[in-house]
Nucleic acid binder design. Sequence first.
DNA 1: ATCGCATTTATTGTCCACAATTTTATTTTT
DNA 2: AAAAATAAAATTGTGGACAATAAATGCGAT
Lengths: 226, 226
Amino acid sequence: MYKTSKHRIPVYESLRQAIIEQALKPGVKLPEDSIGETFGVSRTIVRNALVRLDAEGLVEIQPNRGASVAEPTIEEAYDIFDMRQCLEREVVQRLCRIDPKPVVKALRLHLEEEQKVLGKDSTRSIRLAGEFHILLAELTGSKILENYVNEIVSRCSLIVARFAQAHSAECGVEEHAEIIEAIAQGDAERAVSVMHKHLHSVQDRALLNPEDQQEENISDILSRYR
Amino acid sequence: MYKTSKHRIPVYESLRQAIIEQALKPGVKLPEDSIGETFGVSRTIVRNALVRLDAEGLVEIQPNRGASVAEPTIEEAYDIFDMRQCLEREVVQRLCRIDPKPVVKALRLHLEEEQKVLGKDSTRSIRLAGEFHILLAELTGSKILENYVNEIVSRCSLIVARFAQAHSAECGVEEHAEIIEAIAQGDAERAVSVMHKHLHSVQDRALLNPEDQQEENISDILSRYR
DNA sequence: ATCGCATTTATTGTCCACAATTTTATTTTT
DNA sequence: AAAAATAAAATTGTGGACAATAAATGCGAT
């Protein structure tokens, strides 16, 4: 899972980014052949990338049927968000235990960036919002916590792609500011609470939207039309 | 990461088990050729298994230099154990929130098994002890939490293999019993505290042992001899 | 026209070959 | 004899081949 391991394979990174940024939507097939062609590499490389992505939960490989972008169910979605709450609670708790100076400085720098592109570049905005959470984890100094948060933030992006309507699920920049504030004051209780609320609102925007009806089964939908 | 994905590859499972049970010690090289030969498959299969294990942190792949069993540093070891504390705290907290009946029943059944082989089959004993923790996670009903715990327990086995002296790091069966008891009573606070102590003792047996000096660098050791 | 069946096409699973790189062994030089 | 340079062996990285499986297409029967 460390730097050396990704083998500097651009195909892994590209696929990952494409999925996170919702260019590749859940359920889309990922044929080894065509992907290899677009990247100018053989199936061998693509296959390894897909195996990795499958291990991360972003891709689902079905034996003899190939890979496609994972389609988390609504139950899995809740499961993943719960886990995220747990991990990010740990993150802010740890951050409140260490010297806030460098932490807050790094966070404010990032926040500025977020505010700068607000409303301008939506794709970049979403990416930065996700990276804020990863930065938080990184600042704890725990590699493994950082990895887990990184992974779970990606999977949440996938969930948003599956269930939320367009753009409805961006992180609120003001909420990020609040979190930084709490950390600056070393107020763990408040930091945890703000983070909790923040994540909950992200979750709600993703999962509590009218289009949830998409997820009903077909006969339920049709029964309303007869 | 789900059932379908492992492709029923015995080589992945076997390598994983061998590493966890310390048959393959940290640092041991894992050449694709010879592994493929012993399993009667080609390097392709082995390679995919190694990629997966690398993603899990059990194996380290260095570009152009092949794979070897991961060698967690002492810092990583502490990092991983901290993370484990966080995850297993979450596990017992969740278990204390749900109906204890079926949970306790499953746990007691497992505990019996542990007691049965106690002192008889050391390998099996260690395996069961690890599986107890995975069972706990499984009983929360959260697939992702189960996966994380599964992963981190494996990595802790690796740490034990690296730092502890033989057999010094088995889980105490009585402590498992105590955890079950706390869950049965729905006493979250106590369950968390017992679990914490339990994991801490496992950690200590692994990391607080005299042979830590193995980890000093060569000149430190030699300086004592001149 | 629709359904079921056979055939074709596409895609995956696996192996092997060959080039690139690293590691080990040997020879040469100082 | 030690170090450096060279050669040989082993191992990895990647591409492509071929069989096995699944998906798509076309055909004939009802």
